[in-house]
């Protein structure tokens, strides 16, 4: 089985916290169960509708190849078996920023990923952020639970 970078189950707490701005894209606010992570994520609700209180499993991986070989960066179409097969919604993007919030014991680390302009902010314990690197290519995989 392929090594994933992050795996958790989230619950949608709010939709469009700053008001609806776009027709087909909604920003959801979600909290995770296992690591108590906070997440803001832009989702294309036209192709993958999502409502408040829905639960979903989210996985971040650096490659979709089942054997764990790194992603080439080039996109090849084809019906190869991949990690995506088990998920309903898969996005590809780039990690562009890591920052810290708070101080001392309550310090939290933020990681920011852009999936072609759809953004994700994942906030949680610094130890989780340590696995990520800047400019890393990431796949975000979602499956409703």
């Amino acid at each position: 089985m392929v090594e994933t970078l992050f795996e958790d189950i989230f619950t949608v707490t709010q939709k469009d916290p700053d008001g609806k701005k776009f027709d087909r894209v909604n920003r959801i606010e979600a909290r995770s169960e296992q690591f108590d992570m906070f997440m803001l994520l832009d989702i294309n609700t036209e192709i993958y509708p999502m409502c408040v209180k829905e639960k979903f499993m989210m996985v971040l991986a650096s490659t979709l190849n089942l054997d764990g070989t790194p992603d080439t960066g080039y996109f090849i179409q084809g019906n190869k078996k991949s990690l995506a097969d088990k998920f309903e919604y898969v996005m590809h993007g780039k990690l562009y920023r890591i920052s810290e919030e708070g101080s001392g014991k309550h310090v939290k680390a933020d990681i920011f990923v852009s999936f072609g302009g759809l953004l994700m902010q994942l906030r949680g314990d610094p130890s989780i952020a340590a696995k990520f690197e800047l400019d890393q290519r990431l796949f975000l995989l979602i499956r409703k639970v």
């Binding site: 998920f87 309903e88 919604y89 072609g116």
Partner: peptide, 19 residues
Amino acid sequence: IDLPTPAFIKPVELWTGKQ
């Protein structure tokens, strides 16, 4: 032109305007 990886892979392959 090198085509970038689409931002959406599932349920449909989609690219965004930013790409």
